[in-house]
Amino acid sequence: MNNNENLYQFLLRCADDNLIAGQRMAEWCSNGPILEEDLAMVNISLDFLGQSESFMEYAASLDTTGKTSDDLAFGRSEREYYNHLLVEQPNDDFAVSMVKLLFFSAFQKELYTALMEGKDERIAAISAKAVKEARYHYRHASDWFERLALGTDESLRRLTYAVEELWPFTENLFETDEVYNSLFAEQIVPDMKSIREKWMTTMREVFSNGGVDIPANVHMYAGGINGYHTEHLGHLLCEMQYLHHAHPGAQW
């Protein structure tokens, strides 16, 4: 199928994380709480799409069947998507979307920082560009976390709900398998335990700034990177891939 199955698989995970996060964030377009935040969220969505494209192009270049990045984005079904479960969760309300962005951007900024030091030059180059965006997303999301936590009773209630809803999907971000471990052995990807530690340090700081407790003894969901997803991904893909299915190869 391709020359380096493990690398290909990891690239799809990175590409899919960003594509699904970007598609979800784009759902806010024209629905933002204020014009400025609407634009901010669409900007963030476009950052995700750009990062996804970089990883998808790299994956397509390893594909010996001649698939393009468009084929990979619009031609794969739910079970062939390898994003983490967190990014496919519904937007629900603004607090849920911002908490999701906080968890994900804090993860991405640590992952990209480490990937910049990895042995694969193309991944390192993509990460060096993407880490600036991830740091900005984190800044945006962590500020909102604090505002919502210290705002009104209503904003705190919604924030707490968002944390309870999404925390069970956080352990999944640091899940490793044979694919990951073999790339770790090749020094292409970092030790996921150290990424998790840095992520937890960040979370302790953000939660303590907002005076919010980190959930304890929560059942954690696993999957995503093996193609098994929550029920939400299928619906998202239906909408995202509809045009491509109706008009294969359409361009504008």
Binding site: I34, L35, E36, E37, L39, A40, N43, R139, H140, D143, R147
Partner: peptide, 20 residues
Amino acid sequence: SIHASDKEMALQNARDIYTR
């Protein structure tokens, strides 16, 4: 001009709207 509730939000909103 932009709308924002605090200094940091003002900087970020201005960045997103005027300097992309």
